[in-house]
């Protein structure tokens, strides 16, 4: 594409990358704390992953193999768009759809099903970085509450849920406490993916471009969803009316997060792996057997 002519490797100028790199190191050093940074405008809309993109562009170099996921899929429009922009502005890097092959993964809304390794870094795109925003609109006051590790207002909100619905109603973006202090917003991943952050072997970075924050969960860190002793944290339930775990209609897997949709021919509900690379791999393994 001719639009690439004259742009620096990684699109941003080197000073912008340096600032992000300094911010990332502080984010890793203070697990779960949202480090403010100046956040450059990217040529795609705020909310389309510009925070994650700025992280990826500041991290990536020749020799890296990048995977970009949106909704678990490498082929969704936004994933394709981000990947081709990175390929265009970072000549010499490799891209892949395989979790195994990738050493750098940028994702929106999912953490891959396959456990990540020590040599991998995953970058999550974040629309709302602060879990306290639902109980406290002022950032000034939120920063003090975070510093003090004071999450009483959030716990009251969870408690009110239980009183009203007999269940915690937070479906995704489940507030999670990192290393016993900061509570973070893990980005809009389903509850299903929250336990994957606990003692993850891979570094997890979070970038919120519009809200201008970067935060991190270092490898081998505690990541505990906020709960009460008598109301356990529950991941999404994929059992049918007979309490049988639904399988993926494509690969048969019974241990993955499923997308639900309506079959256009017979109008019935169909369930399928949300993580397309995982689904393909299950199919391939069955082929080998």
């Amino acid at each position: 594409m001719s639009a690439s002519v004259g742009y620096n490797f990684g699109f941003m100028d080197e000073y912008a990358k340096k600032e992000i790199r300094r911010t990332v190191l502080k984010a890793v050093a203070i697990p779960g704390y949202q480090v403010p940074y100046s956040s450059r405008e990217m040529p795609m809309g705020r909310g389309f992953g510009t925070g994650g993109l700025q992280l990826t562009l500041s991290l990536i170099g020749v020799g890296d193999n990048l995977k970009v996921i949106d909704q678990g899929s490498d082929d969704s429009v936004n994933a394709v768009n981000l990947r081709s922009f990175i390929e265009m502005t970072c000549p010499g890097i490799d891209t892949t759809t395989s979790v195994d092959e990738a050493n750098l993964i940028q994702s929106r809304h999912r953490i891959p099903e396959k456990p990540l390794r020590d040599d991998q870094v995953i970058v999550m795109q974040v629309p709302y970085p602060d879990p306290l925003v639902i109980v406290e609109p002022s950032e000034d006051r939120r920063k003090i509450q975070h510093g003090e590790g004071n999450y009483s207002k959030l716990l009251v909100k969870l408690y009110e849920d239980i009183v009203q619905f007999d269940e915690i109603t937070i479906s995704h973006r489940y507030p999670t406490c990192i290393n016993n202090h900061y509570v973070l917003d893990p980005s809009p991943i389903p509850r299903w993916d929250v336990p994957k952050m606990h003692q993850s072997r891979a570094l997890i970075l979070f970038g919120a471009g519009r809200e201008k924050k970067i935060y991190a969960v270092p490898p081998y860190s505690k990541a505990e969803p906020l709960v009460f002793d008598d109301v356990p944290f529950r991941i999404e339930d994929f059992r049918d009316e007979h309490s049988v775990r639904r399988p993926c209609a494509r690969c048969g897997c019974t241990s993955s997060f499923l997308d639900e949709f309506i079959d256009s021919e017979n109008g019935e509900k169909v369930y399928q792996c949300s993580d397309s690379d995982w689904c393909d791999e299950q199919l391939a393994q069955q082929g080998e057997c």
Partner: peptide, 26 residues
């Protein structure tokens, strides 16, 4: 603001699945 407004047009399948799970449970 316009970026965030337009981003709602992007797929939100996963989070919506999660929302349905909570609603059905309650």
């Amino acid at each position: 603001s316009m970026g965030f407004c337009t981003h709602y047009k992007m797929p939100h399948y996963v989070t919506f699945q999660s929302d349905m799970d909570r609603l059905r449970t309650t």
